[in-house]
Design a protein around this nucleic acid. Structure first.
Length: 486
DNA sequence: ATGTCC
């Protein structure tokens, strides 16, 4: 058997791109990394494998813990990790969802082509930067009051549409119609709500961005037609999450769970994996609060999409309907979700924890918008400013191998600190404009350095692994035209 | 990711 050895770990090759850490000692299940050997090299000297192994000790975890091809170390649980845990006898773990609850992306399509845009890039990026608050402590598009916040947490995108920030079709083109029904606003602390009030419609910082892109390649013409994507078309990718509100929900429940379920914590290999037993009060409350934060993030992306439409209207002096600025889809990258899955021939309800991983359901599933149900759900994979992004489609291997999940991005290979030593923001910006005609506008030069294309894994490798495993079918490739960075 | 350390 072929193996891959690194530090204390020996991974066994199950088949191409599937590497298993066998179940030993206190592990409840084996762990699997989906990667090629060069992607494995990139996680060989950080804590990714150790964290993945730790995850297998969560009570009630089924089948195997998974790490997607773009995985890297995170808080307690790898970014790129998937853990499917029994919803009756298992547990739920905030660290396996992440601090940025419903960090995710949405893609808007337009009927504009790259030709329509050239010459307007600078005006467009400046207008978008002015219209959409970004960076830490920037404030939001909306100044929400206490009543608004509760409605946002309860109703999600429905609230935004009723308030005039979008159209009905936006609802049907969002995962869960932009609303988690299990949201419980009463489980969200006042501190979290106060942080959220001034952040409705804000990009945030770090790897969050708004990018105007052009479609450079179509790989699957028939699915692309269903997604209404074609070469040279202009699209807009919005990547942000639940801001301070979601962060506060995670902080609040980690603290409460660590105290209330100290006995379980003691049996876990890492305090950062703190978990609440599935039948506990805190499990119910965290799930309700997390779903509410998910709704907040969807409203955040919805309001930003609305502002984007307005900016395009002003720059191109055309109604957004005439530019057909429509929501293609919106996906969550950080979430836990109650889903039915077949495990060893048995139908079970699982908390599928996806942290830096995208749900990628294949054709036929009821959860997919009617417009895409015959092909599979759109999967949106943002890449770096210099390499572009991908649209994939959920495929049949997902439910069998990964609880219907695939990768979520390129994945960092360098810390932010290291990135600032390697790159100078102004130089990165100049080079992108000169060599790639990518127009970047950011809150600070440091942000651009931290997000330089070289700090990310090769997104082509990440997508190729997903394709070869049958957990995501490449549909189209997108390349940046304008980038607004948090 | 994050009112980046109450």
């Amino acid at each position: 058997m072929r193996t891959y050895e690194t530090g204390e770990f020996t991974l066994e090759r199950v088949r191409e791109h599937v590497w298993e850490l066998p179940q030993t000692g206190s592990m409840n299940v084996p762990a699997r990394v989906l990667a090629n050997e060069s992607l494995l090299d990139e996680i060989s000297d950080d804590r990714t494998l150790e964290q993945l192994r730790n995850t297998t000790e969560l009570p009630g975890i089924t089948t195997h813990a998974l790490c997607m091809p773009d995985g890297h170390q995170g808080y307690g649980f790898p970014v790129g990790g998937v853990a499917a845990i029994d919803a009756e006898r298992g547990c739920i773990s905030p660290g396996a969802v992440g601090y940025d609850i419903n960090c995710g992306v949405r893609l808007l399509r337009t009927n504009l082509t790259y030709d329509d845009l050239q010459g307007n890039e600078r005006a467009l990026v400046e207008s978008l930067f002015d219209a959409i608050p970004c960076g830490l402590g920037s404030g939001g598009v909306i100044d929400a009051d206490a009543v608004d916040i509760d409605a946002i947490l309860e109703d999600g995108v429905e609230w935004a549409i009723e308030e005039g920030y979008g159209v009905d079709a936006d609802l049907t083109h969002c995962e869960d119609h932009g609303r988690r029904q299990d949201a419980d606003p009463t489980a969200v602390s006042q501190t979290a709500k106060n942080r959220g009030k001034k952040q409705v419609g804000s990009l945030g910082s770090g790897n969050h961005f708004l990018e105007v892109q052009r479609v450079t390649d179509v790989f699957d013409p028939s699915i692309a037609e269903q997604f209404e994507l074609s070469t040279d078309q202009i699209v807009v990718l919005i990547h942000t999450g639940s801001r301070g509100l979601g962060h506060q929900v995670c902080t609040d429940y980690l603290e409460a769970i660590e105290t209330e379920h100290a006995d379980l914590l003691e049996r876990l290999p890492d305090d950062e994996l703190a978990a609440a037993p599935a039948d506990s009060r805190l499990a119910r409350e965290y799930y309700g609060a997390m779903c509410a934060a998910i709704n907040f993030a969807w409203v955040n992306r919805q309001v930003i999409a609305h502002e984007t439409r307005r900016v395009f209207e002003s720059v191109f002096e055309t109604d957004f309907e005439d530019m057909a600025i429509e929501l293609l889809y919106d996906v969550a990258h950080n979430s836990a979700k109650l889903e039915p899955h077949t495990v060893d021939g048995e139908q079970r309800e699982l908390f599928v924890h996806r942290k830096g991983s995208t749900r990628a359901f294949p054709a036929g599933r009821d959860e997919i918008p009617a417009a895409y149900r015959t092909v599979g759900q759109p999967v949106l994979i943002p890449g770096s400013m210099g390499t572009g992004s991908y649209v994939l489609c959920g495929s049949a291997g997902g439910p069998i191998q990964t609880f219907g999940s695939t990768a979520h991005g390129a994945g960092r290979i360098m810390s932010r600190t290291q990135a600032k030593q390697e790159y100078w923001g102004g130089d990165v910006q100049d080079e992108l404009e000169r060599e790639n005609r990518v127009f970047v506008k950011a809150d600070s030069g440091a942000t651009i350095a931290e997000e330089a294309p070289g700090v990310y894994k090769d997104i082509d490798d990440v997508v190729a692994v997903s394709e070869s495993l049958g957990i995501g079918t490449p549909v189209a490739r997108l390349f940046p035209v304008c980038n607004v960075k948090g």
